Amino acid sequence: MKHPTNPSPIRPLAPAIGLVMIVLLQASCQMKVMKPTSGDQARERVAALQDRTAKLEDENAGLKARIEELTKAQDPALRTTGAATPRLIDLQISSSSTIDERSSDSGRATLVLRLAPRDDRGRFLQIVGTLEVRVVSVPNQGGPVLLATDLFDPLAVREAWRGGIMGSGYVFEIPLEEAPAGLPSTVDVVTIFTQAGSGRMFRDEAPVKVSMEGAT
């Protein structure tokens, strides 16, 4: 006589396991990916800046060490010569600059520009480089008017040097695009000197008096 067989005890668990899997799948589908917050981004930027700063500090330390090595290896006589070499620190438009009628044959006025370069001890210094000059008139009515612009190369600058009993300096003559009678009592002059070799730029601006009859 055969006894009836009981169903496997594992089978009733299958539906329960399936239900659990469905719940887990639904939960996983509903999970959101967390985006980096602004605080996380800020910390990343700070870390990157710290790394960059550390690298720059290392490079700076290396450069300082190299400079010290070169300074120690330099001949003391050369250091003395370097300290004694005059260096241009100022290039001003002289108050003796003026507008006159040197080009009266063309009916136009001329700017006689005088420049006085000085070193760190206030002494006159000859210069090498290019000079740009702009002359602007500001009439009583209306806007500014460009009267002239000129560019002098290093050779022209050298030729402009003048020396005499009254002192030394550079003199440039620049014709203006205006008749004397049409000028105000003063015009604005701008000079930009670019030193050869170093590339340093020296800028000055000053009013220059119109010393001719008929100036308005």
Rank of each mutant, 00 (worst) to 15 (best):
L115E: 02
V210C: 09
V210R: 02
S38H: 08
V133Q: 02
R123S: 13
L113C: 05
P144K: 00
T71L: 11
T216D: 00
K72H: 07
S8V: 01
D105E: 12
K72Q: 14
V157A: 02
E68D: 15
L88S: 06
S96W: 06
Q26E: 10
P9D: 05
S104F: 09
A109T: 03
R123A: 13
T71W: 07
G143A: 14
A16P: 00
F152S: 02
G182Y: 07
L49F: 12
S106Y: 14
A73Q: 12
L88Y: 04
A160G: 04
D119W: 03
K72N: 12
G182I: 00
S94G: 08
F172T: 09
N60E: 12
D119L: 06
I10E: 12
G39N: 11
L24W: 01
E132W: 02
A156Q: 15
T98A: 08
A65P: 01
N6M: 14
R121H: 14
N140D: 14
S96N: 10
M212N: 06
E68Q: 12
R43W: 09
A160E: 04
H3V: 10
G214Q: 01
E173Y: 13
E178K: 15
Q126A: 08
T81K: 15
G214I: 05
D90C: 01
Q30I: 10
R45S: 11
L78W: 03
T98Y: 09
T191E: 01
P180W: 01
V112R: 09
A109W: 03
V23H: 01
